[in-house]
Write a protein that binds this DNA or RNA. Structure first.
Lengths: 101, 101
DNA sequence: TCTCATGTTCGTAATTATACGAACAAATAT
DNA sequence: ATATTTGTTCGTATAATTACGAACATGAGA
């Protein structure tokens, strides 16, 4: 974030907008919803369902990881993706706060 | 959204990702938070606080409007921006659903 | 009418996001 | 050892986002 904005935008707002941005693409929200409902999944499961190239999927998963919403553990040769519970809870709290839920 | 994605992505997911995208910028989230807390505000109030050009602010307000999260009524020569209550409630419901709040 | 105040729109630039296929890496299985 | 499976990274192209200042509209007030 721009430096001059940090005087105005609080840490919670910055974190929330970051989470929101990660959720701001239909495919990423789809993946999050899948992981939030069932426990975990493999990238390959998603490739079969989603009409996108595997490299594109990989990018979306990376963004969700970078935003902290998911995590992946290697179960070679696959990778098992799950919700990052800690940050998920933080997102829940933050969205409650900003949406006045 | 891409046509081939509509077979996979439901209407709620599409709407939610759209709301999330609008919230996915710190300035826009700041504006939303302001409007959700106090009732309404004028664009000029924001110009004084935010370190961005008025044309940039106008763009952000337009995006929030296009996403349906705010609305503006003309009180010439000013414009009074408020939360769009109807869509705000929908956003609350949708984020509850997808964040399992 | 002319000016002032307020915002939007236009033109532009720089950055970021989205997407694909090909090439690559890593570990398993034959 | 070689092939297969799985997923990332690279190179690239296109589109969208973010940002600014200048120019333009619009209505209020002198």
């Amino acid at each position: 974030m721009r430096d001059d904005l940090k005087k105005i935008i609080g840490a919670d707002q910055e974190a929330t907008s970051r989470f929101a941005k990660a959720m701001g693409h239909p495919i990423r929200l789809y993946i999050l919803d899948l992981l939030a409902n069932q426990s975990c999944c493999y990238s390959g499961d998603l490739t079969e369902v989603l009409p996108i190239a595997k490299s594109t999927l990989s990018q979306h998963l990376k963004e969700l990881k970078d935003a902290g919403l998911i995590q992946g553990e290697i179960e070679a040769p696959k990778i098992r993706y799950c919700i990052n519970r800690k940050n998920w809870e933080r997102a829940q709290i933050l969205f409650k706060k900003y949406l006045k839920i």
